[in-house]
Design a binder for these strands. Sequence first.
DNA 1: AGCACGCCGACT
DNA 2: GTCGGCGTGCTC
Length: 714
Amino acid sequence: MSVFADVALPLPLRKSFLYVVPEPLAPQAAPGCRVAVPFRGCIRIGYIVRIRRSVPELHFKCKPISRLIDTKPLFSSEYLNFILKLSHTFYSPAGELLHASFPSGFQVKEKSKISLTDSGRRALKEKKAASSLLSALSMLENRSYSLNYFVKKIGKNGRAAVDSLQKKKWTAVEESIESRKEKAPLEPLPAFQMEMAFPDQKAASEARAVLQALGQHEFLPFLLKASQPAREDIYFALIRKSLSLSQSVLFLQPEIDLTQRFQEKWGKRLGENIEILHSRVSEAEKKRGWARIQDRRSRVVAGPRSALLTPLPDLGLIIVDEEQDDLYFQEDSPVYDARKGAWLRAQEEKAVLVFGSEYPRIEDMMKAEKNNFLVTIRDKEEKAPAEALIIKHQAEQSLLHMDTIAILKQAVSRNKPVLMFTNRRGYAAFVSCRRCRYIPRCENCDIPLMFNRKDVRMVCRYCGFSKPVIHECPRCGSRMMHGRGWGVEAVAEELKKILSGMTVESFFSDVFNKPGDMEKCLDRYLSGETDVLVGTQMLARYIRPFSASLVVVLFPEIILSLPDFRAGQMTYDFISSLKKLAGGTDDAQFIVQTGYPRHHAVAAAVRGDYLSFYQEEINYRSLLNYPPFTIMAEVVFQDRSARTAARHARDFLRWAGGIAGVDVLGPSKAPLSRLRGKHRIQLLIKSRSRTALDKIFSETLTGALPGASVRVYE
DNA sequence: AGCACGCCGACT
DNA sequence: GTCGGCGTGCTC
């Protein structure tokens, strides 16, 4: 009786492939093992995701696995199940997720060789084959080739040709896999020293419920609503306890820089137990780190969303800090939301899950309240918070209201450090013709080009496309092309005029040419050399709380105009993250200049009144049937040709529209209707239940969603 | 994805 | 008449 295996390949294919497990390999072949398999004439590396003793009648030829790479599974069954659920939830290829789960330093290369057999030699001499096969045979007369190279070399029909050569036994394939051997042995680990002093007993005791959950080997979620310092204390206590229980910890943060700061601050206290994994860590270091993790020598893995895909033995705790941050969503394939991923993984591993935020995502807050896992920590006695003020001003009139100017002048004259924020990069958000309203757009993406003053170019912020700025309108010929919308550079320029004699600097990525430029710019501000620093929300990530005497936010309502049900949350997040920076001195001020002073997201964020914002937002979402009141899936079909994208969308609609319990809206153009040269057609699915949504994305549809990405909101 | 098949426009 | 465009379907 044969044994079969479902093999997931690291390709953007949403299905696995069935192979026969040859008799001798059967005892060791298990889910989580890597295998080499014949696929389209080539040999490829894949992952066994399931072993089957029997299969239904097959309508295709099931090929045998060529080689088993791991005799023991590379992934635990918990990890594999987590990946399969993640794959199912986000309709993301399991093979790609598994492939991203270990450093490329451990990945094996396929090195199979093809050569002529004796009967092949005879066939060549007697010329008893079709000419295409003969020419392929003659290539092998004097030498052997790497299989994958040979297949390409014969060109057209290469795969079919190799298959028939093999069937006739004229050629032989010597399969071999090259894995890069570990050169240096793992360095011995220094004696483990963990600082025993407890940072803040009080904060930790308030989170007693969370601490007690550790070690129970049960899935227990928590939403920790607390300020950053209070959260840190609790995280430390939790990590410490997990380590004492010999459990591993996964610590996720939205951004690499935060992780680096975490390492600087906590690394020493946690001893050598901590492993930082992110894209800036070198491959060699990642490989060593990975080995230490599998060895149980490192028990804490910290990193951004991608760190979620790190197999960890005895995982007992997952922390997702700043959980409201949308950077947790991975947009490029394999697509996943690390928040949902953390949830699925904690469930599978029976671990404790801690979401932490000062102003949680509405969806998570509601879930936590409803299911009673919200832990609110009241603030410690903090440094003097800033006086918060809203100044009503329309963007069209002038950049700054006279009151804003007065406050600015006063702060600067007293040598106070000032930060100013806008959420537009560059000089102007876009350029337009005053006469005919023509707006130059990106050739690859359907968005207006941003005007970048520094190099007198118009650039696309999505794909980087740029062209020299035009002064004459290509449509009506007028010379009335003007920049519109204040970007960081334009704000800085305007400030220089108003605050003559003061140093004003812009902070955003395009301004920095050399590595280190950014740090120098920050240093100039922190040392007081720069009077006013202007930046986007990005700047806030580099400034510590309570370090500015005056923070001015310009027109946060730009976010509110986005066609996104989360715009309110984004606005609240934007304002709150900047409000944190102001304070420390008695006369510190936080100013928001806006045309919508009464919008609930703006007003509540300025007051720091999360609960009232939450109530308003919940009402709005309930009224309009948005998550968390429905599960929403946004399916975007992308293709170079608009027709293909639309056809796929229609095919999908035909299928999804017939499912009971879901509303399908669209197809329509996606908010970014063209991106990097690809047309984007969107469908929105609103579903009451997960089961109905699951039906749409069930196995029956696997592979039938070409070029589509799915984003699930719940 | 990547590749081969198939069916319609401008050319040695 | 063919070369090649890309639209279509498949990979166990």
